[in-house]
Design a protein around this nucleic acid. Structure first.
Lengths: 112, 112
DNA sequence: CACTCCTATAACTTCAATGTTATATAACAC
DNA sequence: GTGTTATATAACATTGAAGTTATAGGAGTG
């Protein structure tokens, strides 16, 4: 239920979206992910924890390293919700279209 | 850039997503939107302000009422970003396909 | 006019997110 | 062992989000 909460909240931070962008090019360790940012390593670790909690990334253990990679799960849930909303919007606009068309027809018929 | 920040942040709140769901069925006033929630009217007004600031809804003036409706703009920006990320992921997965298949085979025993 | 309805804003509290530095832990290398 | 690297966690300050009640003010109604 709060999966969408967590996923959208995670995506609302530009640093985290940048991390995801970086991960889109392949696996990376925490230090590799931290390098481009003017931010401490603990801060990046927290961002990664948020992303992991939201189901947007997964991590494995490789010695002392914890390489991260993207996980498609959360993105799929977001897609489902957006699809649903978009379809409802379109249905709504379709109805409005029908109403507007009818109104224009009535106006054009000039009385009756 | 910060458009995505605002849009994702707006969508991270379940009350705001519920408001959008309601608006997907058509225009609604502030009081109509507030009715289903155990929350004060000022709280709903703030949520609407956030949604408007994120480009997710628009409002018009109709006497003392301010009917709200969905605006597709922010959704489209989110879609573009997600599309981009998804494509990068897919490209990445294509490259990693062999590795991942091997990893998952090791995890899930047998099963061919 | 007085009065009610619809909405927004102000003032305030509470809570959580985001960053910091300092430290802990675990793996590697010598 | 000592030392270095990679990451996580603790403790803390700051900031902003989200709720409340009280109130302001425009728009309709009698």
């Amino acid at each position: 239920m709060s999966t969408l909460d967590a996923a959208f909240a995670a995506l609302s931070d530009p640093t985290r979206r940048a991390i995801l962008s970086r991960l889109a090019t392949g696996e990376a360790t925490v230090m590799e992910l931290a390098e481009p940012f003017a931010m401490s390593q603990p801060a990046i670790s927290r961002h990664l924890k948020v992303l992991e909690g939201a189901g947007l990334i997964t991590r494995r253990v490789e010695g002392a390293k914890r390489p991260c990679r993207l996980a498609p799960q959360a993105i799929k849930e977001i897609d489902r919700w957006l699809d649903w909303l978009r379809k409802a919007m379109e249905a709504n606009y379709d109805r409005l279209d029908a109403v507007l068309a009818e109104l224009e027809q009535n106006e054009g018929k000039e009385d009756q």
